[in-house]
Design a protein around this nucleic acid. Structure first.
Length: 316
DNA sequence: AGCATTCCTCACAA
DNA sequence: ATTGTGAGGAATG
């Protein structure tokens, strides 16, 4: 890329809106495609050229696949923040060794090589998953990006936006939330945002609590049940011992782990998952979810492709 | 035995 | 592709 000048903090900027190069990441450390399309985040979109764009905090990043890894570019970002987000310092090999070996998980492990659980912001995870009930992934992605564009703030004066604060969503006009097709989710999202405005220590307090305790607190929020609570624990609070069960995971567990017992109650499935997969069960859940959707004919990464109009709007 | 309470499951709406 | 609610039935004390 060619340099055209210096931005206010003295870094070189590139043609095409100020994207700055931040080096590269090797394939051995993470498979970005797997990690961004396994259902844990809605903050990333795939461009036609195969690269991924997304926002972390108040910076935008672009990950451009190369044969043995990917190249990083950013708008107002820094390399370390991205590496922290990608959770590269966790010992994933060790975690894999702690997981049980059963045929389904073995298949999932080989399909999901390099998949990593990201370190996402808990509020962003919570708000995003409150948008998710009975919506397909592409639509959840579009809705959360609209939340950003309407109630977030612009990054570098461009078309990428921070995730809106609880305050911003708490004071949003219900009518505008409904206009982005949130439906019944609007009321829960806003009510939960208001809880967090009233209790700013909510997430800091959860960090010191046990997973079970934190789960109970999360389930007290309007619109948050066990599934969403588990997603926030796993994706936003790094609790690898939580195991979210949605309709896909329920089908998978029934078909692959209890093929002979059609009438096993959902509650027993959840208990089984916790004990069978153990303290890193959440990682097993992501591997299984990613693999099962693939084998069920979904293409997780294709579901996150941006439309040509969206790409144009972002300047690509 | 009858009764109150709790727990679970299912169906349905948003 | 989730939660909240209420009806109805089984288990508990």
């Amino acid at each position: 890329m060619s340099k055209i000048g210096l931005n206010p903090i003295g870094k070189t900027v590139a043609r095409g809106g100020g994207w700055e190069s931040l080096g590269r990441i090797s394939r051995a450390r993470i498979n970005c495609e797997h990690s961004l399309s396994c259902g844990q985040t809605f903050s990333w979109g795939k461009l036609r050229d195969g690269s991924w764009v997304g926002v972390i905090g108040s910076s935008a990043y672009r990950l451009i696949p190369e044969p043995d890894g990917c190249r990083i570019e950013s708008l107002q970002g820094n390399r370390q923040a991205l590496l922290d987000y990608l959770s590269l310092s966790r010992n994933w090999e060790q975690i894999l060794q702690e997981l049980p070996s059963d045929p389904a998980l073995a298949a999932a492990r080989s399909a999901g090589q390099g998949l990593r659980i990201l370190n996402q912001d808990p509020w962003e995870s919570l708000a995003s998953f409150l948008c998710s009930p009975v919506k397909p992934i592409p639509e959840i992605r579009r809705i959360t990006w609209k939340l950003r564009a309407i109630w977030g703030s612009s990054i570098a004066g461009g078309r990428f936006f921070t995730f809106p604060t609880p305050e911003a969503l708490a004071s949003a006009k219900q009518e505008r939330l409904l206009a982005i097709r949130l439906g019944f989710r609007a009321r829960f999202l806003q009510a939960t945002a208001r809880h967090l405005v009233d209790d700013p220590d909510f997430f800091p307090n959860l960090r010191t609590q046990s997973t079970r305790e934190a789960r109970t607190r999360l389930c007290e929020l309007p619109g948050v049940g066990e599934k969403i609570a588990d997603c926030v624990l796993l994706f936003g609070l790094g609790r690898l011992d939580s195991f979210p069960i949605d309709v896909w995971m329920e089908r998978l567990l029934r078909r692959l782990y209890f093929p002979e017992r059609a009438r096993i109650p959902t509650r027993e499935l959840a208990e089984f998952a916790l004990t069978h997969f153990g303290p890193y069960g959440g990682y097993a859940q992501q591997l299984l979810y990613f693999w099962y959707r693939q084998t069920a004919g979904r293409s997780p990464s294709r579901e996150l492709e941006l439309s040509p109009e969206e790409e144009a709007e972002l300047g690509f």
